[in-house]
Design a protein around this nucleic acid. Structure first.
Lengths: 133, 133
DNA sequence: GCAAAATGCTAACTGTAGCAAGCACACTAG
DNA sequence: CTAGTGTGCTTGCTACAGTTAGCATTTTGC
């Protein structure tokens, strides 16, 4: 797709690595990959697979998702972390197949009315519902 | 690494594809990949990259994350952003009354099996990964 | 001054992801 | 029975992710 993204990923990784006071070899050892390869990733010469990214994320103690987003293999259109409504949870549940997902959504909507999930949460802080049912 | 996971991914994909009434060629076209390759992925012979997974996820209209988890490149027990699982979300939803809540939970459990939410105190793997701003 | 050990980078190689071409089989016309 | 189109699968092949071995440079210590 966009090699710019890969380069951006590289810069970001190098940034994070230096911020963590780690040398190429140190981080590569931590991540379980070779140091030349890490070097090439950081300079945008190579495009790491998701597995490699995950290992690097672990070593750097950053979230794998953030790296995936930078690598362009996950959409940045991620909902707010603290937003935890039912529809989002259903959408994110990998154990459900599509029809199950839809069924749950239908049931839920029949209960609460057709408030559909808005991509831009307008007032996230206000949890209108009393936590007490 | 774990070919079992890859095979599991393949089965899952084939399941989703047939559920969506799509042939190999149809889905491969939708996903923008070759049909032999998709066939091999489904049978666990090839290990698709995250990019390919994302394209397949889009074509199948399932979340990329769920495929990543199945592919073993994202942790299911993710300490990260969307920690919102369905049961927690249902429990937290103030718009539901108790009966509705229970109904939804029942439906959900009938779908995913009775894996009940385990508020596991152990967060064994990485740290909170505050990627900060 | 010279070693030794850091640092990051280059070169050559291997394995495999992902492709285009084509096969074998099933089904439905004609 | 043969010709068409659908299904999924096998076969090479190319490109590139990721490796090991080693280079050039700087820094530290004698």
């Amino acid at each position: 797709m966009a090699p710019t993204l890969v380069h951006d990923l590289g810069s970001y990784l190098r940034e994070q690595r230096t911020a963590a006071q780690l040398s190429l070899r140190q981080l590569s050892e931590l991540a379980g990959i070779s140091n030349p390869y890490l070097s090439q990733i950081e300079r945008g010469l190579k495009k790491p697979s998701a597995e490699i990214l995950q290992q690097i994320a672990r070593a750097l103690q950053v979230s794998a998702e953030s790296l995936y987003v930078r690598a362009g293999i996950l959409d940045a259109a991620n909902p707010d972390p603290h937003q935890c409504d039912v529809l989002h949870a259903i959408a994110a549940d990998g154990r459900l197949n599509d029809r199950q997902r839809q069924a749950l959504i239908d049931v839920y909507r029949s209960f609460v009315g057709n408030t559909h999930v808005d991509p831009a949460p307008s007032h996230p802080s206000s949890s209108p519902s009393s936590t007490h049912a």
